[in-house]
């Protein structure tokens, strides 16, 4: 077991290494002098020269990569020339809104989509099933920012129930904090619900065809018990897997949602950095999001052992 966990953690090293190479190459593929790009348009010749020395830009590219990786593992992502602070600090500052939004979205999506998927599988081919599948295709098709504006228009502008935009920290009180997160979370949830409900349905449908379900019914278990304890429990692995894969979708959605709702999180930071061509920040944010994605999927893989005792490594 420990052996498996250790091996699985080690397996993420090459993936992260490739990500680092790609992010490193991103800057080298940009036309122009990397030092000048990193320093920004307003930099003096002196600043550019300092960056050139600190990154070893006069050395061969392999050495440059070594220096860059050396900075990375010590948590040094460089300095944002737009915000004039360390990128690592910048990311830490912007973490709370994004983390809140993502957590709330995942919680809400799972609580809604898993029951929907189970019911659809239970009533396979019925009106509920077809309605859910129809919703799922629509959920995949409606752009997240269009949905955001529809919700803002109805809920905030017409009904006046929730604030239009902005963000309040938890420290400013829990209700204002939650109030500002409800619409963004619902917006982000729709595609996630579509995805998880679809996989839950397919996975539960498969386990409902198994012999142990017939046995469970034959011994007189209540239908709810059959569905939850037997069908859903055996369908858990694909559901958890798709949540892990869906994190990539969520990160993409966060970039757009934070921008529409004016939430000062990492997604908003990404867009602002790109608009300002703030390369140290762009690199830092991509590395951070990729690390989160790889980390979550590592946890998902490790969770298989607990979800399905049949899996032995």
């Amino acid at each position: 077991m420990l052996n498996f966990i250790a091996r699985r953690i080690l397996a993420t090293v090459p993936v992260l290494a490739i990500v680092a190479v790609l992010v490193f190459l991103l800057l080298r593929l940009t036309p122009g002098d990397p030092a000048a790009i990193l320093a920004g348009d307003a930099a003096s010749a002196d600043q550019i020269a300092r960056i050139r020395i600190s990154l070893g830009l006069d050395q061969p590219i392999i050495v440059q990569f070594g220096i860059w990786i050396g900075h990375l593992v010590t948590g040094d992502l460089g300095e944002s020339f737009y915000y004039k602070i360390q990128v690592a600090d910048l990311i830490a500052q912007r973490l709370e809104p994004t983390l809140s939004l993502a957590t709330l979205t995942i919680l809400f999506s799972v609580l809604v989509s898993v029951p929907l998927g189970v019911i659809a599988a239970w009533r396979f081919g019925g009106w509920f099933d077809r309605a859910l599948m129809g919703f799922s295709v629509m959920g995949f098709s409606i752009p997240v920012f269009v949905l955001a504006y529809i919700l803002i228009w109805i809920v905030s502008l017409k009904l006046g129930w929730l604030p239009v935009q902005g963000y309040k920290r938890v420290a400013d009180g829990f209700w204002p904090y939650l109030q500002h997160l409800i619409l963004p979370s619902i917006t982000l949830s729709v595609i996630f619900i579509a995805l998880i409900a679809r996989v839950t349905r397919a996975s539960v449908l498969e386990s409902l065809g198994e012999d142990y379900i017939r046995t469970a019914r034959a011994k007189g278990l209540r239908e709810s018990q059959v569905l939850i304890r037997h069908a859903l429990a055996n369908a858990a692995v694909p559901i958890v897997t798709v949540i892990g894969i869906g994190i990539a979708l969520l990160i993409g959605g966060v970039v757009v949602t934070e921008s529409v709702y004016a939430i000062p999180g990492l997604g908003r930071l990404t867009v602002d950095a790109v608009l300002a061509r703030d390369f140290p920040t762009i690199q830092g944010v991509i590395l951070f999001f990729s690390l989160v994605y790889v980390g979550v999927n590592l946890l998902v893989d490790l969770s298989y052992v607990f979800l399905d005792p049949r899996i032995r490594y």
Partner: peptide, 13 residues
């Protein structure tokens, strides 16, 4: 490695 970077981030960058 390429798949570990969310698609929109690659495109934006």
């Amino acid at each position: 490695g390429l798949m570990a970077i969310p698609a929109i981030l690659i495109a934006i960058a």
